[in-house]
Computed example of a mutant assay.
Amino acid sequence: MVELRNRQPLVLIASHGEWVGRSVESVLELNDYAVLRVDGGRRALDLARHVSPDTLILDTALSEIDGITVCRALTDDPLFDHSTPIFITSPAPASNRMRTEALEAGAWDFLTQPLDIESVLLKMATFLRARRRLVDAESTSLIDPQTGLYSVRGLRHWAAQLGARASRNHEALACVVVTSNTPADVTTAGKPVSAALSYMADLCRAKSRKSDVVGYVGESRFAILAPDTDETGARQFVSRLQRALDRTTTAGTRAETQTPLHAGFYAAADFSASGVEPVDVVGRAEAALDYAMASGGKGEPLSFDDLPAS
């Protein structure tokens, strides 16, 4: 049993090469992660089941059992916590077939070496934040009491429903996550949310279609699940929001403002061919938003598929 000091997230690394494994381990430890490192697939599978790491990094070229097979075994294990992010890494340029196989096995992301460690850290932080939210949401309502929109749990429920339909009918599916620079602090318990947060909630609801699912994921971020929506549709939705945000009502008069809307999204033209689990689409959109904000983007929506390859 591994005890985590200061509640550090525990990362299980299973790498083919010792140098790569040690390098990633050193960087993670410098960023306040606890690390377990092994070099075999069978050992990684055993530890993942008994230690319950917060995230896993698995190499495709592991001895005994390859990383994709380990990932698939954990995904099929009903006792394994399926909210645990799993990264699959490849020590050589990988084919699209291998990438698809990894995603179908349940990987949250597929990375090629040498790793872009800054991108890995950003994605890991995003996925772990999403995981914490999912865990916290298990005991909460499908509706967020502050905004009246769907909660994280509600979004997860609808993502599963919409994803199943999109896969069955070979339809498009998108998720957009947006935030603005408008302060949206929430007051103490029992008090109403700020006007800015309420305004953004109303705006997202008003500019969405009846078929869309609008939710609040915390930290002034709003997620929109959009069925029958591809990349073009996702970008058009963000443009509609930005135009509406640029015109606000102040003291009963119309006033032009320039409030940048930051947006990240994930979109699949045929969701059945994406190899992505429906419950992961919100996390992917959030990862794109995180990267857009961290890289100093100019407000253009960023697709998860356009994140730098690692």
Rank of each mutant, 00 (worst) to 15 (best):
P260N: 04
T84Y: 04
S274A: 10
D136F: 13
S23G: 11
G190H: 00
L134A: 15
E29N: 05
A164V: 09
A189P: 08
R284G: 05
P9K: 04
H157E: 11
H262L: 09
A105H: 02
G264E: 04
E277P: 09
M200A: 10
I65G: 00
L149W: 04
L134S: 15
L122E: 09
A164C: 10
S310C: 15
G233T: 07
V178G: 05
E286H: 07
E64F: 07
G148P: 06
L74E: 00
T140C: 12
P91K: 01
S198K: 12
T84D: 04
S198C: 11
L302V: 11
A223G: 01
A273C: 05
D109C: 06
E104W: 14
V120H: 06
F265W: 06
V24D: 01
T248V: 12
S83D: 15
S90I: 06
A172R: 07
A94Q: 07
H262K: 08
G154L: 00
L307T: 02
G215H: 02
L142S: 13
R43E: 14
T84N: 04
V35S: 03
Q161F: 11
Y199I: 08
Y33S: 01
A244I: 07
S95E: 08
H262P: 02
Q146W: 14
F222V: 00
R131W: 02
C204D: 01
L12F: 05
P85R: 03
A267I: 02
A94I: 07
A268C: 08
A61K: 09
P192T: 03
S198M: 12
L142N: 11
D32V: 10
T69Q: 10
K298N: 15
R43C: 10
Q258G: 12
T147H: 03
A201D: 02
R254S: 15
E118N: 13
S23I: 09
T232S: 12
Y150F: 14
F304W: 10
L261Y: 03
T75Y: 09
D32W: 11
D54F: 00
T84R: 05
E256V: 11
Y150P: 07
V281F: 02
A288N: 00
E118L: 13
S23T: 12
L28H: 00
Q236D: 14
T232I: 13
L142F: 12
V152Q: 08
V120C: 10
T249Q: 15
